[in-house]
């Protein structure tokens, strides 16, 4: 179990995270927030790459920075920018990282084969990585994070650069992994984690906004989300009445999905709030042009 106690992080005068209190047990957690909210900052602290400016992070009651290699032995980490040595093949690179993780060569070879199978890269095992696409490199990164069968798996925007098919496979892999370990996945893309996360953590204004199941988080907007069909010309006027979530064109009309917290119009169709709605609503001031 990982506990963050009053964790803050400042970069000079700028406070990126303020008094964060969180608890993670086994399961899959989605860290969901727009770019710049502090996801990477939190993850780097959990990966011992950065010390908090205040507060402490405990694994089973022990400070992770004092645990040193004992903690790192339990850790699998994929950074937002996964780097590699250009002349290395995935097999060579993974063998090297396995050595750093203290895994013997024989054991490592078996594991590497199994993992590359899992991320669907067995054919290019011996090809130089400089010829790889972004998605392929990302998959090597995911395999790398799993080498030591980590009890704590932390992935920073792992789906960046993956195509829809790869994303689907990856979601499947994640939900499998989340069964018997702590998995924390950061993303600013709702659909990556909506269907698989046991809990979602959302950061807003340097603090935790929600840490709850998708269902519970969606309940916060229960009864406030509607859909209706309007004329395209009415769209601008409509924006002043309600918080627009999405719009799509259909047979000359515009179907709008929106949030309204007062007495509803009879023509409006109440709908069940989705995580995407909460995301758009909560970050309405800073996500424009983002998602």
């Amino acid at each position: 179990m990982i506990v963050l106690k009053d964790v803050s992080k400042r970069y000079g005068d700028f406070t990126a995270l303020h008094d964060i209190n969180l608890e993670f047990t086994n399961g899959l957690y989605g860290l969901l927030a727009p770019n710049g909210a502090g996801k990477t900052t939190m993850i780097k602290m959990l990966a011992t790459l950065m010390r908090p400016s205040g507060g402490e992070i405990l694994y089973d009651g022990k400070d992770i920075f004092q645990m040193e290699e004992t903690y790192r032995t339990l850790l699998g980490y994929l950074p937002q920018q996964f780097g590699f040595y250009k002349n290395y093949s995935p097999k060579q690179y993974l063998l090297y990282l396995a050595a750093l993780k203290g895994i013997g060569k024989k054991e490592a070879l078996v594991k590497i084969e199994e993992l590359l199978e899992k991320v669907a890269l067995p054919d290019v095992m011996n090809k130089k990585m400089k010829k790889f696409s972004g998605g392929m490199i990302q998959r090597v990164g995911i395999a790398q994070a799993l080498l030591n069968d980590p009890k704590v798996l932390i992935l920073d925007e792992p789906t960046a650069g993956l195509d829809p098919k790869e994303r689907a496979r990856f979601r499947h892999l994640l939900s499998e992994l989340g069964r018997d370990r702590l998995v924390l996945v950061s993303t600013h893309i709702v659909s990556d984690i909506e269907s698989i996360a046991n809990e979602i953590v959302m950061i807003k204004n340097r603090q935790i906004l929600y840490k709850d199941s998708v269902e519970k988080i969606c309940q916060t907007l229960e009864g406030h989300v509607y859909e209706t069909s309007i004329k395209y010309e009415e769209l601008d006027a409509f924006r002043n009445r309600a918080i627009l979530l999405s719009e799509k064109q259909e047979q000359g009309n515009t179907i709008v999905r929106f949030i309204h917290k007062g007495k509803p119009d009879v023509a409006w169709l109440p709908v069940t709030p989705q995580l995407e709605d909460v995301f758009l609503y909560e970050y309405r001031d800073d996500v424009d042009g983002e998602v």
Partner: peptide, 13 residues
Amino acid sequence: NGTYEVEMTCKYD
């Protein structure tokens, strides 16, 4: 090459 972070989180950093 950007491998520093990953290597830094390995048992032997």
